[in-house]
Structures are given as structure tokens and as C-alpha cells.
Amino acid sequence: MTAPETARFWRSPALPGVDLLRARYVTHRFSRHVHDGYAIGVILSGVEEFDYRGVRHRAGGGSLVLVDPEQVHTGHAGEPGGWAYQMLYPSVEVIAGIAAELLAGRGTPYFPEAVVSHPHGAALLRAAHDAAEHGDDLASSTLARVAFGVLLQHHAGRRPAGTAPSAGHHAVRRAREILHERLIDPPTLEDLAQAVDAGPFVLIRAFKSATGLPPHAYLNTLRVRRARSLLDSGMPAARVATEVGFTDQAHLTRHFKRIVGVPPAAYQRAGTYKTGPEKRT
């Protein structure tokens, strides 16, 4: 038997624009998904494996994980005992503001390497996370800013100049707009392709090339983002499910946990999600 899985996802008033997660996962698997901000964290024990930018990465104890905004990735245990980690999810605005103070030049910072070793940066992130958990607002806000600054100075780059838009660029942009507008009653693939004047297979290829996800998976990501906003407002999960287009609360819970890491109820109460002991197979 293994120890139970446990996860807590919450926000601290001292860290506006930053979500926090402390978790231990064994069998949980994150589906392919994206964050609208950065995902920055430290592995406490075990090994996490994740697919990112066409490569499978392994992050062991003490490693730092650095994932850029809107970049598709997964997440699962890299060994039978699972992994434990502390994650911070700063918004683009938070990181851009720090980068503007510390780094010369313009543009949004990005992290070329997804897994790095930086003991000082890891210690700062852990200290910031621990301080937030204990309600030490001054310490958490100070340490988080210093930690992000250290990582930017040592591991961040600037995105290269963009290339000319591809032939499918405008079709994908319009398709994304339609999916944003029609969370509850999305069109079929054929109708979506017709609306953007593209063939269905052409649209699938262009959409996945641009976003990393096929249209239906992208739609579920949008639904989960909207669900988080509604849960934050206090709306019951059962109603949230219908408001964002899921068939029922179980459907919402399944997709929500695969992307956020905790079920909607645990997210809403900012409490700890815990499973029972699991048998090894």
C-alpha cells in the first residue's frame, strides 16, 4: 500500500496573480492542457514525468519545473511511488512586471529548459510556498518575488521574433473566437470548419499546430478556465457544470481534476483533497 494522494490548490492574498498547489500524486495523470500563466515549481520527492514541446521530461527531487504560458504539457508519476511537489502559477503580468525591473529589452520572458537544477532557486520557492501556507504575508510576497527574479535572471530567455502567419493562421484565430463564444453549444467540426472557410482536416492540423490541442480539447480547457471563475464567485459546482457546457457535475469533475489537479469542490473551498490508501499492482 502507498500513502494517500493529497492536493491543496489555493490563493494567498499576499500573492495576487499567483495560484499555489502542494500535492502528492501516485496514479493521477494530468491530461494534455495549458495554463494561461506560468507553471513554476520544485519537486520535493519522487519523480514526475511530463510531455512538453515534443519531449518527455523527468524531474526528480530538488529539480525545478519551468513551463511557459499556453504551452501544452501533461504530468504523471515517473516511478511507482509517485511524486510530491510545490507549484506556483504566476500570471504573465506578474512575471512580465518582474522581468521589466530586472532584464533589459522587451518581450515576454520564456524558459528554454523545462527542468533545471538550481538549489538556491529551489530553496527560495519552497520558502515562499511555506510562508504562504503559514499566512506570513510579508515573507511569502518577498520570497516569491526574489525567487521569480532569480529564475528569470538565470534561466529565462526572450522569445525570438515571430515569423509570418501561416495560411491557416486566420482560420485558427477565428475558430478560437467561435469556441470562446460557444462554450455551451459548440459547433461540430464540420460546421466550425465551414465557418472559417477551411476543410475539417486542414483545420485540425492548423489548430493543433497553433495551440498544441485539437479543437475539442481546447474547448474543454476553456470550459475549465470559465468553471474556475464561476467557482471563485461561489456558484455551486452542479450549476457551474451546466453554465460552462459540461453534461453534468461528474463530467466537470473529470476534466477539472485532469487539468487543475483537484476536484471542483476542493478547489472551491481551497481545502486539501485526499484519496484513500492505494494498493500497489
Rank of each mutant, 00 (worst) to 15 (best):
T27A: 07
T27I: 14
R22G: 13
D248H: 12
Y273I: 06
S91N: 01
L213R: 11
V202T: 13
H28M: 14
H216Y: 04
G149T: 10
G97H: 06
Q153G: 10
L103E: 12
V72T: 14
G78H: 04
R258L: 13
I204C: 12
H35S: 04
G82E: 07
I259L: 08
H169A: 15
V67E: 05
L151Y: 12
H169M: 13
Y267P: 08
L88E: 09
F9L: 04
G135C: 10
G121A: 08
L143D: 08
L192A: 02
T108R: 11
V262Y: 06
G157H: 09
A238I: 07
S209G: 05
Y38A: 03
S229G: 14
A147M: 09
V116E: 01
V150T: 15
S233V: 00
A167G: 15
A14Q: 08
I204D: 03
E278V: 15
R280P: 01
F30A: 10
A175K: 05
R258P: 10
V240P: 11
T272G: 05
G60R: 00
Q86V: 13
S45T: 15
L213F: 04
T253P: 08
E49K: 03
S45W: 10
G78N: 01
R223A: 08
H76T: 13
G97M: 10
P186R: 02
A14W: 04
E177P: 02
G261R: 02
A139M: 07
A7Y: 06
G162F: 04
V92I: 15
I95L: 11
T247G: 01
L125G: 00
